[in-house]
Nucleic acid binder design. Structure first.
Lengths: 141, 141
DNA sequence: CCCAATAATAGGTCTTCACCCACTATTTCA
DNA sequence: TGAAATAGTGGGTGAAGACCTATTATTGGG
C-alpha cells in the first residue's frame, strides 16, 4: 500500500522530474551548509572554467538575471571566493575573478557533489552511471 | 562564449537537476493550461491505478501533506474529476474516487506528457529512451 | 558634444511550494 | 464513559526563485 502509481512511473518525464528533484535537493542541502545555493556554485564553476567574466557575461552564460548576478557575487565576495574589479578599459564593467579560496571551495563542493551522486546512483554500476551521464548530456545538448 | 561550465556538466547530479527541471517545467506548463498542477495528476493516477483512497492514504502514498491533499481534492472535485464520500464504516474518513471524467482527463494528460517527453528526448533513439527509462527506474528503486 | 545604449546596482513584486497549527468530528480503548 | 488518538479541514507562514523597475555611471555613435 505504499507504491507509486504505475501510470506515473511509466512516464520518463515523471522519472526525470523526480530524480532531478532528489538530486537538486541533496545538492542544495550541502550547499546550504556553506550558506550557498546553486547559482553560487555555477558562478564559481564558470569563473574557474572560463576565467574572469564581466557580470553581464556571467548573466548571459548561465541564464541568470543580471540583478541576481549582483547578489550572488555579493555573497561570493564576502567570504573571499571572488574578487570584483572595475574594468579600466570600460569603467561600466565589473570583472569578477575567482580567488584561490574560491577554487578551493569549488573543489570541495565538487567533491561533495560526487559523494551525493554516489549515494543517489548507488543502484547503478559504473558502466551504467556513465551510460546515464552520456544520455543526459545528449538531452541537454 | 555561451557554453556552460564543464565543471558542472561533468556532474551527473547537475545534469539530473537540469533535465529534471526542464521536464517538470514543460509538464507543469501543460497542466497549468487545465488549471492543474503536478499533484493533481499524481492523485488522479493513484486513484486510477489503485482504486479509491481515504485522503490519509493518498497523503501516505504520494508523500503530500494531508492538508494539501484536501486542497488538491477540492480542485479535482470542482470539475468533477473525483468524487468524495464519507466512509460509512468510519465516518472520520473521506473516500476519494476517480470519475469517468477524471479517467478521461488523466488519459489526456498522459498523452500530452508523452508528447512532451518526445520533444525532450528527441536527441535519443527509441532504444536509448528505454535505456534511460530503465536506469531512472532503478535509481528511484 | 549630446543622446541613446550599456553595465551594474538596489530594491521590490509575485509565485510556488512545503510545511505547520488550530479546530472539529469521530472512533478506540482503558 | 472519559481520555487519547485519528481524519479531515481551514488558514495560515516562510523560504526560494524568477522577474521587473528605477537609478547611476559610463561609453560610443551620430
Amino acid at each position: 500500500m505504499e507504491a507509486l502509481p504505475p501510470s506515473l512511473l511509466g512516464l520518463t518525464t515523471y522519472l526525470l522530474s523526480k530524480t532531478g528533484k532528489a538530486a537538486r535537493g541533496r545538492l542544495a542541502a550541502r550547499l546550504a551548509a556553506d550558506g550557498l545555493r546553486m547559482w553560487h556554485m555555477a558562478v564559481l564553476a564558470a569563473l574557474a572554467d572560463f576565467g574572469p567574466h564581466a557580470q553581464r557575461d556571467l548573466s548571459a552564460r548561465l541564464g541568470i538575471d543580471p540583478s541576481d548576478v549582483v547578489k550572488v557575487l555579493d555573497e561570493l565576495s564576502a567570504p573571499g571566493f571572488v574578487d570584483r574589479a572595475r574594468d579600466p578599459a570600460d569603467r561600466r564593467r565589473v570583472t569578477a575573478t575567482i580567488t584561490a579560496g574560491g577554487r578551493r571551495e569549488l573543489t570541495r563542493l565538487t567533491r561533495e557533489a560526487r559523494a551525493i551522486q554516489d549515494e543517489l546512483l548507488a543502484p547503478l554500476d559504473v558502466a551504467e552511471r556513465d551510460q546515464l551521464h552520456a544520455l543526459l548530456t545528449r538531452i541537454l545538448v
